[in-house]
């Protein structure tokens, strides 16, 4: 490579590194703002905000979903495999909502530490398979 091009290439690389480091630092500083939701562990450790709306994400614990006798009121327990939080929601759940499924709820904590959700969104995993395969997997 001739010296002029080598110089230009070094310039390009250094400039790119500079931009990448600057943006990397900014994103690192803003990481909690960029993350979509808080986890149940963060509620327990008081990292989650009090008295204002935020999003809470986790897995719906098996056997924890309880529907009210009348109306759409539902309560369930969200877990991040370390800590849990109880959520109450009054509304229509998305198609993918089920036990063992990841969800993201938006709402706020009440005085008793229960999360009162205004919206519930389902998170789905990266697995795709035909129903027969899923059934066979369950059997094993």
């Amino acid at each position: 490579m001739n010296p002029v091009r080598r110089k230009r290439l070094t310039g390009v690389i250094i400039a790119m590194l500079g931009v990448a480091i600057a943006i990397g630092l900014a994103l690192y500083a803003l990481r909690q703002n960029i993350s979509l939701f808080y986890t149940p562990s963060q509620i327990v450790s008081h990292e989650a905000p009090h008295g204002r709306t935020f999003r809470l994400g986790g897995m719906v614990e098996k056997g924890s979903v309880k529907y009210a006798k009348k109306g759409l009121l539902v309560s369930f327990v969200l877990s991040d495999l370390k800590k849990t939080a109880t959520v109450k929601f009054n509304g229509i759940l998305p198609d993918l909502f089920r036990e063992g499924q990841g969800i993201v709820a938006e709402g706020r904590l009440n005085n008793k530490g229960i999360f009162i959700a205004d919206t519930v969104l389902a998170k789905h995993d990266a697995n795709y398979m035909p129903p027969e395969v899923k059934a066979a997997l369950k059997k094993n």
Binding site: R31, S35, G57, L121, K123, D125, A126, Y128, M129
Partner: peptide, 23 residues
């Protein structure tokens, strides 16, 4: 890097695909 609603990748060069062969 962050918590997102979007799921992780189903396809990647190194890992086994998380999607059944027929799909």
């Amino acid at each position: 890097w962050w918590n997102t609603l979007h799921q992780g990748a189903s396809l990647s060069l190194l890992a086994k695909p998380k999607i059944a062969p027929s799909m």
